[in-house]
């Protein structure tokens, strides 16, 4: 979101700029394909994700079942693309939440000495817990549901962003251009957004892609452990969890949802890298 507004400032051919960057173009292409597959799952999927067919259980991948079938004869391909809906939703929503909370806390902590003591202590305390443990605790406390998983992951990953933002804020607020703004009498909130936040777009984006990836993995982990969304709902995590018992006889049950996770995470990283280059005017020679 921040990315779009920062880069669209009178640059005439944003599409050309993107296409010039291979990693960004490839990453975006994969993300778009994955998102389309997930969103259009009802149209694309050859079978309903919950359709049982006991006679066809544990069939290997073939022309009929692209990714094979599971222990109940459900089509893995259909389930994988349906599962993408939830996995992407959880990842995106958790990242958005983590970004909102983390950026606000980080800016406040980096800018106001007094707030810093308290905020930094809380951040440290939260980061002392392993991610998944804290998420489990939060989900357990709030009661398992899709919304709780999102909130829990958002809360768990907010400190990562807060820390990055705080550290960079501490550096930037001492730079002469911030001093120049203060000498001009520019209000603090505007210094925070225009001078500090705008220069943090790259680290925030990079961190956000990581968090998106982590959140998806964590959601898979929570589902795998049975504390996430209900096991009947297909997510890549619940699918891998289910496939675990059959990994010797039907490894496609775990491989395909696993590949989906890897591909999504990888493309997110490519997009993050590419955007970082695109948004850095020092690397932008073509304007």
């Amino acid at each position: 979101m921040a990315a779009a507004s920062a880069s669209s400032v009178d640059s005439p051919r944003i599409s050309t700029l993107i296409l010039q960057r291979k990693t960004l173009a490839i990453g975006l292409a994969i993300i778009v394909v994955i998102t389309l597959l997930a969103v259009l799952a009802p149209l694309i999927a050859p079978y309903a994700p919950g359709k049982l067919s006991i006679v066809n259980r544990l069939k290997p991948p073939s022309a009929t079942w692209f990714f094979g079938t599971d222990e109940f004869g459900r089509d893995i391909f259909s389930r994988t693309i349906y599962a993408g809906q939830l996995s992407l939703l959880v990842g995106a929503a958790a990242t958005a939440l983590a970004a909102t909370v983390g950026i606000t806390l980080g800016l406040v902590a980096g800018f106001f000495r007094k707030a810093d003591g308290i905020v930094s202590r809380i951040i440290d305390a939260m980061m002392a817990f392993p991610d998944i443990l804290l998420a489990i605790a939060l989900v357990a406390a709030l009661g398992p549901s899709l919304a709780t998983v999102i909130v829990a992951l958002g809360v768990v990953y907010a400190p990562r962003l807060a820390r990055v933002v705080r550290a960079s804020t501490l550096v930037i607020r001492e730079l002469p251009y911030v001093e120049a703004a203060r000498a001009l009498g520019v209000p603090t909130w505007r210094i925070m957004t225009r001078h500090v936040l705008r220069n943090l777009v790259s680290p925030i984006l990079v961190q956000a892609t990581f968090i998106f990836a982590y959140a998806m993995l964590a959601e898979a982990g929570l589902s795998f452990l049975g504390v996430g969304v209900s096991p009947e709902i297909p997510t890549w995590g619940t699918m891998i969890a289910a496939g675990r018992q059959y990994v010797g006889q039907a490894d496609w049950m775990t491989i395909f949802p696993g590949l989906a996770i890897i591909l999504t995470v990888l493309s997110l990283q490519l997009v993050g890298d590419g955007l970082r280059d695109l948004l850095d005017p020092r690397l932008r020679k073509d304007l």
């Binding site: 730079l175 002469p176 251009y177 001093e179 120049a180 000498a183 009498g185 705008r198 005017p281």
Partner: peptide, 17 residues
Amino acid sequence: RRLQIIFQDPYSSLNPR
């Protein structure tokens, strides 16, 4: 508004973005 400053380092005194 009545007092202004010119900085030593012309690189870090202008917001790169």
